[in-house]
């Protein structure tokens, strides 16, 4: 059986007046059927561009795309669309329609599918069936958007940042919806800039940055790639003054360290054995007459993978 998604050397350059923006620079991707695949990347990484090219909504500048074994523009676009479902980033559905009317509308475009009521059941929104879209909360609107993507009983579902801007409870409810969908064998391509979301929902994750995939694997594999399972974060002071002018390399001699990076307010080490690394770190600091201002340890997550790979944070601090 063919893969659900194949991208080969995908390039997209937006011509925006005089400026041209290279959104994708040779993106390679292959997603087998039945997988829930996460595209994780910061703002502007090219996630939406990738997803919209895959849905045939925009054309790539160059490169090849195959979706469910078919190509866009080869005469069977509408046949292909029958098999896809999606939520686009920042789509606001019609305020003055009710939830059920919206779903009936979307359902009418597909030859086969589930009933609007079944779609409502899948996203757990039955009690809002006759409410106007305008009156829904952000999380409910987003679940309705997912339901609109489900009425056509898709083989492949695109979810572009389905939980951005939602509060933690609303996010967790959407995660439940996606987890339930995974169990039905639907292939899902999910984009997000929340590492916990990618870690929780995806079978495999690709980390995208500046239009390229810079790491690919299961969340566990990516974390293992860092070598260390643990993170030690600390900040320094000397004679009561903050010290963050040392290069990160300064700490690569600490026992069991795999990588060292600078953080906005200190340093981040990935280490294999914290019980060896921390005494070793303290020893080095004492020798250099540096004091610790703070120190925390935790397990490695995908965010650390991203930071280690790019030296940048995945989400800006104000994002929650």
């Amino acid at each position: 059986m063919t893969s659900a998604i194949v991208c080969e050397n995908l390039v997209k350059t937006y011509e925006d007046g005089k400026r041209s923006v290279e959104a994708l620079r040779g993106l390679e991707l292959e997603v087998p059927r039945g997988e829930c695949f996460g595209l994780l990347g910061p703002n502007g990484a090219g996630k939406t561009t990738t997803v919209e090219i895959l849905q045939g909504l925009i054309e790539p500048t160059s490169g090849e795309v195959q979706v469910l074994g078919l190509r866009w523009g080869a005469g069977n676009d509408s046949e292909l669309r029958e098999k896809l479902g999606s939520t686009l980033q920042e789509t606001r559905l019609q305020d003055k329609l009710t939830v059920i009317e919206t779903l009936q509308l979307f359902r009418s475009f597909y030859r086969i599918g589930i009933t609007p009521q079944q779609a409502l059941h899948l996203v757990d929104l039955e009690e809002k069936s006759s409410a106007l879209v305008r009156t829904l909360s952000g999380g409910q609107k987003q679940r309705l958007a997912v339901a609109c993507g489900l009425v056509g009983k898709p083989e492949l579902l695109f979810l572009d940042e389905p939980t951005t801007g939602l509060d933690p409870t609303a996010r967790r409810r959407l995660w439940d919806v996606v987890t339930a969908l995974k169990a039905t064998g639907t292939t899902i391509l999910l984009t997000t800039h929340y590492m916990d979301e990618a870690e929780k929902l995806s079978d495999r994750v690709a980390i995208v940055d500046q239009g390229k995939i810079i790491a690919l694997g299961t969340p566990r594999q990516l974390i293992h790639q860092l070598g260390g399972e643990h993170v030690v974060e600390f900040s320094l002071q000397q004679n009561g003054q903050r010290r963050d002018d040392l290069p990160p390399d300064h700490f690569t001699r600490v026992a069991t360290v795999h990588s060292a990076t600078r953080e906005p307010d200190g340093y981040l080490l990935t280490v294999a054995e914290p019980h060896l690394a921390i005494p070793s770190l303290l020893q080095q600091l004492a020798a250099e007459q540096l004091e610790l201002a703070s120190l925390t340890t935790r397990h490695v997550n995908l965010e650390d993978v991203f930071i280690t790979l790019t030296g940048k944070r995945l989400t800006e601090e104000e994002d929650n």
Partner: peptide, 12 residues
Amino acid sequence: RNLLKRLLATPM
């Protein structure tokens, strides 16, 4: 509202 694009993503 990005709705035109959303509709275009369906077989409409």
